[in-house]
């Protein structure tokens, strides 16, 4: 069964059927909430931001020109709202040296992770992602979880495509670095 395109629901909302917006909220709430959660690290704040973003979308629907996907537009609003809220809360992140990060054995980590159960793999990935800079997590999330190409990630975050690629490259390196720390014992048995 094919999925009803967003545009159909958007048109219904513009025609006065508010309830059609419900389908869009159902469709994108997990990703919108997940994005905000990674940036804010707090469920209540993340829900507030995601709700706020949906409400802003609804109110500005008349000005949405459909030049990009609805979800791209929504994620951009979530991102901007979360960054704005995060700035007020002054999120702290740890900084690590890029030279150390370069040394992580990516293939060994991939092999070790491939042998794990899905739940365990997600647990370690989640722990490693928690250590990344919130904006890097957003890039990882949009690129790897939402499956958005780099040009769309750039549109959502307001970065240039080359900047997105550079940051994704570094974020991936850092992810492997933290995974290596978490999986140190398992990697020893593997090697």
């Amino acid at each position: 069964m094919t999925e009803v395109p967003d545009q159909v629901y958007l048109q219904r909302v513009l025609d006065g059927d508010d309830n059609a917006f419900r389908f869009l909220v159902d469709r994108y709430q997990d990703m919108a909430f997940g994005l905000a959660l990674q940036l804010l690290k707090n469920r209540e704040d993340a829900e507030e931001v995601a709700m706020d973003a949906f409400a802003k979308c609804y109110r500005s629907l008349g000005s949405f020109k459909a030049e990009s996907r609805f979800s791209t537009w929504l994620y951009r609003i979530v991102y901007n709202t979360a960054i704005s809220k995060g700035r007020k809360k002054k999120l702290t992140v740890s900084a690590i040296d890029d030279r150390i990060v370069e040394q992580a054995p990516e293939q060994d980590i991939q092999s070790a992770m491939a042998q794990m159960q899905q739940e365990e793999r997600q647990k370690y990935l989640g722990l490693a992602m928690e250590k990344l800079h919130p904006e890097d997590v957003t890039l990882v999330q949009l690129y790897y979880l939402a499956g958005r190409p780099t040009d769309e990630v750039a549109e959502i975050t307001g970065m240039t495509v080359s900047n997105v690629k550079v940051r994704l490259h570094r974020a991936r390196k850092k992810l492997y670095f933290y995974l290596e720390r978490l999986l140190r014992d398992e990697l020893k048995t593997l090697l």
Binding site: Q29, D30, M31, F33, G34, L37, R43, A46, E47, A50, E106, Q110, M113, A114, Q118, R121, Q122, L125, Y144, L145, R172, L175
Partner: peptide, 13 residues
């Protein structure tokens, strides 16, 4: 790296 995220269950509100 895409393989690492396969089957990822997102956090839900």
């Amino acid at each position: 790296t895409r393989n690492l995220f396969e089957g990822w269950t997102p956090e839900k509100p």
